[in-house]
Simulated assay, not measured.
Amino acid sequence: MLYRVEGLVIRSTDYGEGNKIITLLTPSYGKQGIIVRGAKKLKSRYGALAQLFTYGDYSYYKAGTLGTLNSGEIIESFRELREGLEGPAYAAYAAELTERSINDDEAAANLFHQLKACQNALVEGKDPQIVLRLYEMKVVIAAGYAPLLDECASCGRQQGPFRFSCNAGGALCTSCRHRDPTAIELDEIVWKLLRVFSNLDMRRLGNIMVKESSKRQLQLVLRRWIDTYINLNLKSRSFLDQWEKYGDMLGERMKRPEPLSETEAGDGMV
């Protein structure tokens, strides 16, 4: 059967001497594996369609598990995400997290648009650490593991202060925090950011300015949440962690001024 879809390449691996197998994230059919014959050859007609992060229009035949590319056209190459070190590090993490977190053929229309918006935000030079924290939230929601942020996960109390508990499922109030001694105390602005991230469509993401201390708390919370509920060993995450730790010493990481305000997301300040 012949299919035609728009898709983002979230994985690309060598297959045989001259071919590649790509995994597309599509809005209609979720993840789709496609063989691109001759993609590794220098004069390949479709080699560019097999590159990681590419957004394209793909036509392929599929009778079993894998499809075979029939034709295709690049809509947006996202070439900038394959250059240097910082862009590929963050974009590869977003792609691998997506590929490993959702099942094949699972409906993924919203996540497709969120990933495309994530890639656009990285190309536009928005703070990659915040872009990735926001996208991590979109992935855990798509995977069915959204944290409870507006009320106590144990008793339902809606008035804080709260601590964040991965074991309990999100917020824990003062009366219930004894249920998880490992629950994390967060700054109020971090709670606000988590709630914004939970509801904000990445296509509406505006300019962002967040303190380094808030960034560290956001990373800690979302990484622990992902480790608890999705539990993935991602090669791209290990590299990204090293990059964020040593990037300044290597002199490759973009220099960003110290923010003046907590954050600006969407149409307003939070």
Score class of each variant (00 low, 15 high):
residue 123 V to M: 04
residue 133 R to L: 08
residue 155 C to V: 12
residue 107 A to Y: 13
residue 104 D to I: 10
residue 94 A to S: 12
residue 76 E to L: 09
residue 191 W to H: 04
residue 79 R to T: 13
residue 178 H to I: 13
residue 150 D to I: 03
residue 188 E to L: 15
residue 181 P to Q: 03
residue 183 A to F: 07
residue 81 L to K: 02
residue 81 L to A: 08
residue 171 A to T: 07
residue 177 R to T: 15
residue 168 A to G: 03
residue 94 A to V: 07
residue 168 A to V: 10
residue 78 F to K: 02
residue 92 A to Y: 04
residue 147 P to N: 10
residue 117 A to W: 08
residue 178 H to C: 14
residue 140 V to W: 01
residue 78 F to C: 03
residue 192 K to H: 14
residue 92 A to R: 06
residue 159 Q to L: 11
residue 178 H to V: 14
residue 190 V to G: 14
residue 103 N to V: 11
residue 157 R to H: 13
residue 143 A to H: 11
residue 193 L to M: 14
residue 69 L to E: 06
residue 172 L to K: 03
residue 183 A to W: 08
residue 173 C to F: 11
residue 99 E to A: 13
residue 115 L to Q: 08
residue 78 F to I: 04
residue 195 R to E: 14
residue 141 I to G: 04
residue 143 A to V: 13
residue 135 Y to G: 05
residue 97 L to Q: 11
residue 190 V to Y: 12
residue 124 E to P: 03
residue 117 A to K: 07
residue 192 K to P: 05
residue 69 L to Q: 09
residue 140 V to S: 02
residue 139 V to S: 10
residue 170 G to F: 04
residue 140 V to T: 01
residue 112 F to Y: 15
residue 125 G to L: 06
residue 150 D to K: 13
residue 120 N to F: 10
residue 105 D to G: 08
residue 194 L to S: 06
residue 96 E to Y: 05
residue 152 C to P: 06
residue 98 T to E: 07
residue 172 L to V: 12
residue 92 A to L: 09
residue 71 S to K: 12
residue 116 K to W: 01
residue 70 N to H: 09
residue 165 S to R: 07
residue 141 I to V: 15
residue 192 K to F: 06
residue 138 K to P: 05
residue 126 K to S: 02
residue 158 Q to V: 13
residue 138 K to W: 08
residue 107 A to S: 15
residue 90 Y to N: 08
residue 173 C to S: 09
residue 101 S to N: 13
residue 160 G to V: 10
residue 164 F to D: 00
residue 177 R to M: 15
residue 80 E to K: 01
residue 90 Y to M: 01
residue 120 N to R: 13
residue 118 C to S: 09
residue 179 R to D: 10
residue 166 C to W: 02
residue 168 A to M: 10
residue 137 M to F: 12
residue 139 V to P: 12
residue 113 H to C: 08
residue 161 P to L: 14
residue 187 D to F: 07
residue 186 L to M: 05
residue 136 E to T: 04
residue 148 L to A: 09
residue 88 P to W: 06
residue 68 T to N: 09
residue 80 E to L: 03
